[in-house]
């Protein structure tokens, strides 16, 4: 008799149904991402140009500060390209982190009024940052053409590193968004984390300048593996990958992602009551 019912609401129930729901609500997921993209540059004068100007200016500043003033090595590659190749994944990570950590709170009115798998919200923020990433990627090709710099076949491995970057961003985003609902302290932690991370990740410089004995520890920062991978895929052998380090980074990223997913699922039930 009870089999007639499509939906059973019970305390702690509905784990299997969750993933099916996630698929059912995929349209909402696209709509939310679409909304965030649309809203982003509304009432701005130059609109979408902002997503071009921001990475370009950062690249110029970094090239001047680290390349020209500090005179850090760039292994024969034009310094701007070296910086830009690292800035691509870093910007993606940083944007995802700041957007997704606030995403649940920004959508509090939705969370308390409508049901949908909450995972959609931080995922949507990461997707929006991914769109920015692709815009920046096009600019990279422009900069490379400007310097007449030709990539090789390794470029085809870029999607693999992008997946790694995605997992790192989404994993960290899940942790921070869920924590932020309960402890608003994280609202203040994230901007600091992003700013700090820029300097401890090899964005403005090459990871090769880190002393050998600290190398393994350095790779515990998941973005180090991602950034090195990006540089290697785009710039070739001038930036060899330290494979054990990359493997460590990848494992750590995966762990963070799975942990984030579990934590998020666990906290999700009380979001509407806590937020």
């Amino acid at each position: 008799m009870s089999d007639d019912f499509d939906l059973i609401i019970e305390p702690g129930g509905g784990i299997r149904r969750y993933w099916r729901d996630l698929w059912k609500y995929r349209e909402l997921f696209f709509f939310l991402a679409w909304r965030d993209i649309l809203v982003r540059y509304k009432q701005t004068v130059i609109g979408i140009a902002w997503s071009v100007i921001r990475p370009l200016l950062t690249m110029i500043v970094f090239s001047i500060v680290f390349g020209a003033l500090a005179g850090l090595p760039s292994n024969g590659v034009p310094y701007p390209i070296m910086v830009y190749a690292a800035m691509l994944p870093w910007q993606f990570f940083a944007n995802s982190l700041s957007e997704s950590s606030n995403s649940l709170i920004d959508n509090a009115n939705l969370l308390t009024k409508v049901y949908f798998p909450r995972l959609i919200v931080p995922a949507g923020s990461v997707i929006v940052s991914l769109v920015d990433f692709f815009i920046s990627l096009v600019i990279l090709f422009g900069v490379m053409a400007w310097y007449r710099y030709l990539p090789d076949v390794r470029m085809l491995l870029l999607p693999f590193f992008l997946v790694l970057a995605f997992l790192a961003s989404f994993g960290a985003g899940l942790w921070l968004s869920a924590l932020n609902v309960k402890y608003r302290d994280f609202r203040y932690v994230v901007p600091f984390l992003v700013q700090f991370g820029l300097y401890i990740s090899p964005v403005g410089f090459s990871s090769a300048i880190v002393p050998e004995k600290w190398r393994m520890l350095y790779f515990l920062n998941p973005m180090v593996g991602v950034i090195d991978g990006f540089r290697w895929a785009i710039l070739g052998d001038a930036f060899p990958v330290y494979w054990p380090g990359l493997a460590l980074s990848a494992c750590f990223t995966l762990l963070m992602f799975i942990g984030g997913l579990l934590y998020f699922r666990n906290m999700e039930r009380s979001f509407a009551d806590v937020i």
Partner: peptide, 14 residues
């Protein structure tokens, strides 16, 4: 509407 979970009991919906 499944926004929040019950502490006890059960709801069945068709």
């Amino acid at each position: 509407s499944r926004i929040t979970e019950p502490t006890t009991g059960r709801v069945r919906i068709k």
